[in-house]
């Protein structure tokens, strides 16, 4: 087990390194850098920066030197000081911009993840056990549609009906009267009332994908020799299903945390935009469009970090669920 954990941790570190490189490349890609942008802004205000000022600024922000030095400066600032750089648009340190919204983002995503699971697992299992039944066909059809429909399209359709039926679009995570209230039952109910919309929009693709995964896996498992063998020794059908194939089919399900989380986070970009959620999505979009690269890069970095942590959690869960992995017989 410890060996397994150690391997995962090393792997995670390597991944983070790779991600940081990629993010740095993204940050450095657009022509010009932070100081150039600053110069332009001052120029608009009629102020001029002397070449000495510029050089001073560059060395302050670690923008002198070659790309490798710049990368090293950037990454040490992050690792040692938690300093993600300055957001040009917001005129604030990036870490401040992000931290104020990270909670809501994670909250919405994790809530959606849990609901997604709770919906997808029974549907997928039912669909596999009752293969070729009407329910199976319905689930499969909806699954295909869910996967084929971009989630912003779902959001748009949702908005169309919402406007035509109710005359408005519900936005934000809370109604004005509750937003500043302290936590109580009313606020929780209000939150749930707002949360289900982003959940539907963000979660549809996830549910569709997971239903497909669980169905295919379970179908595979149901054909394995151990199922016949268990039946041959008289294990009753209900228990047979629960103890044997369902348990094995849970594995790939758990290992999906890694890829479902980013899908949910990206769904947030779309939905957050339309529904005005106080999440990272809209900020990221704004930063990308305005080429506010430190902010954009940092958010991408944070999303990737969340994904990597998600993968780690799913690896740990897998190790706990599956003795083959725990004992190192299966990679």
């Amino acid at each position: 087990m410890f060996q397994y954990l150690g391997r995962r941790a090393i792997y995670m570190a390597a991944t983070l390194l790779a991600i940081s490189l990629v993010v740095f490349v993204i940050i450095s890609l657009p022509p010009g850098d932070f100081v150039t942008a600053l110069e332009a802004r001052y120029a608009v205000q009629g102020q001029r920066l002397t070449p000495e000022d510029v050089a001073e600024l560059r060395s302050r922000y670690g923008l002198d030197g070659n790309l490798l030095q710049q990368y090293l400066h950037w990454i040490t600032q992050i690792v040692l000081h938690g300093d993600l750089g300055m957001s040009f648009e917001h005129q604030k340190p990036v870490s401040e911009v992000i931290s104020s919204r990270l909670g809501a983002t994670l909250g919405v995503s994790i809530a959606t993840l849990l609901v997604t699971w709770a919906i997808a697992f029974p549907i997928g299992a039912y669909s596999a056990v009752k293969q070729h039944s009407i329910g199976d066909y319905a689930a499969t059809t909806i699954g295909f549609l869910g996967l084929a429909t971009p989630n912003f399209l779902i959001a748009l359709i949702f908005i169309y009906f919402s406007v035509n039926w109710f005359g408005s679009v519900p936005s934000g995570l809370c109604s004005p009267e509750w937003c500043d209230a302290s936590w109580n039952l009313g606020k929780v109910l209000d939150l749930l009332g707002h949360l289900w919309i982003p959940m539907i929009v963000i979660g549809t693709a996830g549910v569709a994908g997971l239903v497909r995964i669980i169905r295919n896996n379970l179908l595979d498992e149901l054909r394995r020799p151990y199922v016949t063998a268990a039946r041959a020794r008289g294990v009753p059908e209900g228990r047979l299903l629960r103890r044997y194939p369902l348990r094995v089919a849970l594995n790939p399900f758990v290992s999906t945390i890694g890829w479902v989380l980013p899908i949910l986070l990206v769904g947030d970009i779309v939905v957050g935009q339309i529904l005005g959620l106080p999440t990272l999505g809209p900020i990221l979009l704004g930063a990308l469009k305005g080429q506010d690269m430190y902010l954009a890069g940092s958010i991408i970095m944070v999303l990737s970090l969340v994904t990597v942590i998600g993968t780690l959690i799913s690896d740990l869960l897998l190790g706990w669920l599956d003795p083959r992995i725990r004992l190192g017989y299966l990679r």
Binding site: P225, A232, V235, Y244, R324
Partner: peptide
Amino acid sequence: QKLRGGDIGMIFQEPAASLLPLR
């Protein structure tokens, strides 16, 4: 139910695959 595993025992070609790996 009594026949399966009670009066009649059965073993298969792939012993490792006939046992549930997780238990």
